[in-house]
Design a binder for these strands. Structure first.
Length: 349
DNA sequence: AATCTGACCAACCGCGTTCAC
DNA sequence: TGTGAACGCGGTTGGTCAGAT
């Protein structure tokens, strides 16, 4: 379709508006309304194109425009609406009286987007970022190179580091998936499209347990309850503050096939759930947990009644998760530091 | 004091849609 | 119904300013 030719016309002024031009535009619109924007500049005595006049009026001169810093409520509203509407700035602006789409767009690009990224969220999906995986090969390569430079037995070190990095990334991603969705906005209703898929969680849980086998293919049962502690809260107090610790309890009546149901229920934030095959997990009473911080109190530990050896030989070995949980918290206190930890002190290449 | 860098935001550009003829 | 002008919207640019080096 035809594009407006007005901006292509030569001889029309561009760039910042002067106070005199503003006054002409305001006075004309107050007296006559804007009518046809194309005809307005000539009628108002402005050497501007109609489009420029319209933008100046709608984004800056309109009397009902609210200027100044965005309030916490406005910020929250933008987050809510953006999680639903995406970059529909005009639609978002329609819910914020006095704010223009341009202003909201600028505020988003300069503040909110960065804020979400810092908190570990994808600003487009409002879900925890998973791009750790896409960058993992790069991280591992550099980490391996570091080992190579520092350690003569670099092959072994690199392999170990690779395994640890991959394991950590999986665990962190699993923790992200188990958060109550979505957390970028406390006002947003829980919508199913923010929930991780059952398969997604199942695959991660299985791969974690599988790779934690200490004695492969021996079917050694898990002999004592083991707890996966949540990682430390990040600097902003999110998102790990909502994460329960996971207690894996040996239970001969359960099978690994119950894990998808466990995972599914964990997403639902229920306090007590009975799954198939006598599988169950529950949130212990709050009295068993340390006193919560003033803001964003953590959920109490989550007990998972987990099976021991399974008929499925891929998953049937013992899990030594306590050391895993301990190392995870000490090596990478939060997800944002994983890359930092690996890159830290790496000489420039 | 000079230069650099990044944040901020008004304004522009260009595409898709709507409207009038 | 087809066409072109007008409009609306989202992405991008570029000027300004403040803080860091």
């Amino acid at each position: 379709m035809g594009r407006s030719p007005c901006c292509d016309e030569s001889g029309l002024k561009k760039g910042p508006w002067t106070p005199e031009e503003d006054q002409k535009l305001i006075k004309h619109i107050q007296n006559h309304g804007h009518g046809s924007w194309r005809a307005l500049p000539k009628l108002a005595g402005l050497n501007r194109c109609g489009k420029s006049c319209r933008l100046r009026w709608t984004n800056y001169l309109r009397p009902d425009i609210k200027r100044g810093k965005f309030s916490q409520e406005e910020e929250q509203t933008i987050l809510n609406l953006h999680s639903v509407l995406g970059n529909k700035w005009s639609a978002i602006a329609s819910h914020l009286p006095g704010r223009t789409d341009n202003e909201i767009k600028n505020f988003w690009n300069t503040h909110l987007k960065k804020k979400l990224i810092q908190m570990g969220f994808d600003p487009m999906t409002h879900r925890p970022r998973t791009d750790i995986f896409s960058s993992l090969p790069h991280i591992i390569a550099l980490a391996s190179l570091k080992e190579l430079m520092e350690n003569p037995s670099w092959e072994e070190q690199a392999l170990r580091l690779q395994a640890e990095a991959l394991q950590m990334a999986k665990f962190q991603y699993l923790q992200f998936l188990l958060q109550p969705p979505p957390t970028t906005s406390s006002l947003t209703n829980t919508t199913t499209n923010n929930n991780p898929t059952e398969i997604e969680i199942m695959n991660l849980i299985n791969s974690l347990f599988e790779s934690q086998m200490t004695t492969p293919n021996t079917n050694t049962p898990l002999t004592a309850p083991t707890t996966l502690q949540p990682l430390a809260t990040d600097s902003a107090g999110l998102p790990f503050s909502h994460l329960p610790s996971l207690e894996i309890v040996p239970n001969t009546t359960n099978t690994y096939e119950t894990l998808p149901f466990i995972a599914k229920e964990m997403c639902g934030q229920n306090n007590e759930v009975s799954g198939p095959n006598n599988c169950s997990w529950q949130l212990p009473s709050s009295s068993t947990t340390p006193s919560p911080p003033a803001v964003d109190p953590p959920l109490p530990p989550l007990n998972i009644i987990h099976d021991g050896p399974s008929s499925n030989s891929n998953y049937g070995d013992a899990c030594s998760t306590s050391s895993f949980a301990g190392s995870s918290a000490s090596i990478w206190p939060d997800h944002l530091l994983l890359e930092d930890a690996l890159f830290h002190d790496i000489p420039s290449l």
